[in-house]
């Protein structure tokens, strides 16, 4: 019996490797899931006098979309976000992450804004509170202010249909 041990051990390894080929090593689950969204109070892009806080969104299911003008894949998801915003399905709040050149207002004026509001996180501290590692990242936050889902990378129409829609339905949005 003993002589089959190496083979069995190896076959188990192969099973894991096969699974591993379809995993994305970049996709790191967020510990924030099912926890209250970290509170913050940040000025709005283009209007330093006004500010945004997640508390403002109580009672609504909403998306927090972390992006930056210098981020290329954010441009990829921009049209998808525009469509979502136009459909009125759910409100999207932008978190303008580490935009040192402060180009966000100009860019949004030019290409249109899918956002209800865009908060300005210049030094990236709020980003750290949300566990942001890069842009774009999108959080789904429910009526009670709990983070229910996090998506890393641009939202494509497929991702929207397969990942976001079911979650939003579940949350009653």
């Amino acid at each position: 019996m003993k002589r089959w041990v190496p083979l069995v051990a190896f076959l188990i390894l192969v099973g894991f490797f096969a699974k591993g080929l379809f995993l994305n090593p970049r996709e790191v689950p967020s510990p924030l899931i099912d926890r209250p969204a970290p509170a913050f109070e940040l000025p709005l892009v283009g209007n330093d006098a006004a500010s945004f806080s997640p508390a403002d969104m109580r009672g609504k299911v909403w998306l927090l979309n972390v992006w930056a003008p210098w981020c290329v894949s954010c441009r990829q998801e921009h049209p998808v976000l525009m469509q979502i915003a136009q459909s009125g399905r759910v409100s999207i709040v932008g978190l303008n992450w580490k935009d040192r050149d402060r180009e966000a207002a100009m860019l949004l004026a030019r290409s249109g804004s899918p956002y209800l509001a865009v908060a300005e996180d210049l030094d990236g501290r709020v980003g750290i509170d949300y566990g942001v590692t890069g842009t774009p990242e999108t959080y789904v936050i429910d009526r009670e202010g709990f983070v229910r889902m996090k998506h890393i990378g641009p939202i494509s129409p497929d991702v929207w249909k397969q990942k976001f829609e079911p979650k939003l339905k579940e949350l009653g949005a």
Binding site: R3, L7, V14, F17, L21, F22
Partner: peptide, 26 residues
Amino acid sequence: PARGAFILGFLAVVIGGSLVLYAWRA
């Protein structure tokens, strides 16, 4: 992934085959 799948398949054949042979001849 295509490359990974190819090497994994090859790995399974070469190593798996040799371990079967080992178990058979041990």
